[in-house]
């Protein structure tokens, strides 16, 4: 497996500042992008793939776990309790949005859709609130991640389980945020 950290000359650790990493990629691109590269010694496509892996927290964590703790992602994993609870709230709210969108999809005239405005505004408010809760949750998970990052050098081994939990948290909550954003877009369509 390619070590994306090594490829981009980054330390192998849980947290990387996204903006710093992006600036670095911009500098590397200005030198190595095939359109402008003076020599072809660097595989830009590979470098770019590595950047995408490291820039996204979820794929970075997955990659880190695979490198540091092979096998840690195999088998069934217990879903953390708080994530489970969050899912119930989310599924309930998203269900009512789904019902509304289904109803709206059958309407063709602008006036009929306009008559649903109050309901739509109400649902948008609900989703807004939900998005707030989810974003806060994700921020909390990132805080934990930064905390582990701070003690990473001294004690990698004991971080394993916490990192697996965090990886799951980032995967689920990140995906839910995308889904709720998509719902908001669909409601506004």
């Amino acid at each position: 497996m390619t070590d994306c950290f090594a490829l981009l000359n980054e330390p192998r650790r849980p947290w990387l500042d996204p903006d710093t990493l992006k600036d670095k990629m911009h500098k590397l691109s200005a030198e190595h992008h095939p359109d402008v590269a003076k020599d072809a010694s660097v595989d830009f496509t590979e470098m770019n793939a590595a950047y995408h892996t490291l820039h996204d927290p979820k794929s970075r964590l997955r990659h880190l776990l695979e490198l540091e703790f092979p096998g840690s992602l195999a088998g069934s994993m217990d879903i953390p309790f708080d994530i489970n609870r969050l899912f119930e709230t989310m599924a309930r709210e998203r269900h009512s949005v789904g019902v509304f969108l289904e109803k709206k999809s059958h309407l063709k005239s602008p006036l009929e859709i306009a008559l649903l405005s109050s309901e739509k505004i109400e649902l948008l408010g609900v989703l807004e609130k939900l998005l707030g809760v989810l974003t806060q949750k994700l921020d909390g998970i990132f805080m934990q991640l930064k905390f582990i990052d701070a003690v990473w050098e001294d004690d990698r081994a004991s971080s394993r389980d916490a990192l697996v939990d965090i990886y799951q948290g980032v995967s689920y909550v990140g995906r839910w945020i995308d889904q709720v954003r998509e719902d908001v877009l669909k409601l506004n369509e």
């Binding site: 602008p110 006036l111 859709i113 306009a114 008559l115 405005s117 109050s118 739509k120 505004i121």
Partner: peptide, 9 residues
């Protein structure tokens, strides 16, 4: 009319 309904909501 539709615009007015949206506005009212």
């Amino acid at each position: 009319l539709a615009a007015l309904i949206v506005e009212r909501a």
